[in-house]
Design a protein around this nucleic acid. Structure first.
Lengths: 247, 247
DNA sequence: ACAAAAGTGTTGTTTGTACACCCATGC
DNA sequence: GCATGGGTGTACAAACAACACTTTTGT
């Protein structure tokens, strides 16, 4: 048995089996723009993977929670105020060798937001840009570290979250029409949905959306009622997507 | 801009904002026994929280993945061979102050297994024991660190996983009757299910279970057909539980 | 009037639920 | 036979999917 110490490094510093690690957060930031699901990437300004696109992220500071770190990186690297978007943890990635610099544990966060008016391009030297997820999925765009694998898991998570939670509303602005909401589903699931049945399902799911009383006038056609997010996050019943995903 | 180094500690060692952290895994191991959902706990043999019950876990070694570390701790602290049970990551917990020894990042894993013939009680000095989750939920049992919060999230996850995945089969042995499977649902959801409707739902969900052709003879009553896990993990359609969770 | 998009109705099919009923075994 | 639990049938209700139809706007 090892001697007991109050500080972990007192009794671990001589161990050759356990060593210190560095803690980072990485962000999978999604939005829907131009009928495409887009992800925010930055061009790395440092080694390793200098010049290669990557998910924004960075080291978690002392005395900072993971959530706080994610919000800070969101602001620093992407110039985005995170208070208005949905942020949730995806998971931890810590395979030895995932980072050539040593044992770097990254905690991936999922961020969902409306098409952001804020011009992206962080305060850092890194350049931020929106990329269609399709370009990452089909390999046209290569990412640093294990970010492609992380992004793939993030995507799966987003697609499933749309079924069981009100996550789709995070892609819309403060208020939105049911067509706006339906477009989010169609783009992310890659399938068409019947407008009338979609409407009924959404309105029959308690707490999903709330009518504002306001209207929105489309360029042509009948005005549409505006809604805002309801109080429910878990959908009951859920909006299950059809078997055939693509087309 | 900081100078670029290949090793992370070259350029971080002088930083007062970022410091090293220690990486652990903690395991929320569940089983169903005596019509109760049980969780495996250990009595801590070291400071901090000496003598207090905690989820089994420990430091991740160099050159070890999180998954490998979880399997190792499962064997060392609980004396369980993890190859036969379902193991999946829950999330990372890293709040500063969650461990008095410094910045300790823990990655929580969820483990689901059948009522284990293996006598628990690890190879460590720590004593392992099964505790009803109810005792933790209602506060009768206090846990070290933030393990109670982690366990609460793990429980939510298990309850939801039963709806959308074949996770319930992980609580059964290699082969099981539909009543065995139904009991798992009833115990974990805390609600009664109609045997005949449950049977139909399970058999109509493609790939959920597979008949073995074997039978099991109950102490009294008609023999029951035995099944094994199907190839599907995601259930389509899912088994949604009724609105009212506890009676 | 016409086009376009919102919103409602209708109908046939599928799924869910409750519960009665039959089956196979041990005693 | 009887008790016990496995397994099937059925009938009503709710949910779903497809699609016709009506409403409200701009041009």
């Amino acid at each position: 048995m090892r001697p007991l110490g109050v500080r972990v490094d007192d009794w671990l510093k001589d161990s050759d089996e356990v060593g210190p690690s560095w803690l980072t957060v990485d962000l999978a930031i999604f939005t829907v723009r131009d009928d495409q699901l887009m992800v925010l990437l930055v061009e790395r300004g440092l080694e390793p993977f200098h010049g290669m696109p990557a998910m924004p992220g960075g080291y978690v500071q002392k005395n900072e929670t993971l959530h706080e770190g994610a919000l800070r990186e969101l602001a620093e690297e992407a110039g985005i105020d995170g208070s208005r978007l949905h942020l949730e943890q995806l998971g931890a990635y810590a395979d030895p060798g995932r980072d050539p610099r040593g044992r770097v544990v990254t905690v991936a966060y999922l961020a969902l937001g409306p098409d952001l008016p804020a011009p992206v391009g962080g305060t850092d030297a890194t350049r931020a840009f929106w990329a269609p997820v399709a370009h990452v999925e089909d390999g046209r765009l290569d990412l640093a570290f294990d970010h492609r694998a992380i992004l793939t898991e993030a995507l799966e998570e987003v697609r499933r979250k749309l079924e069981y939670t009100a996550a789709a509303t995070a892609f819309c602005g403060e208020t939105f029409t049911l067509t706006d909401l339906r477009t989010v589903y169609q783009v992310i699931w890659g399938q068409q949905l019947d407008p009338s049945n979609f409407r009924r399902k959404v309105l029959n799911t308690t707490g999903f959306v709330q009518p504002t009383g306001e209207q929105w006038l489309p360029p042509t056609g009948r005005p549409a009622a505006l809604y805002r997010r309801g109080q429910a996050w878990l959908l009951n019943p859920p909006l299950i997507r059809a078997e055939t995903p693509g087309q």
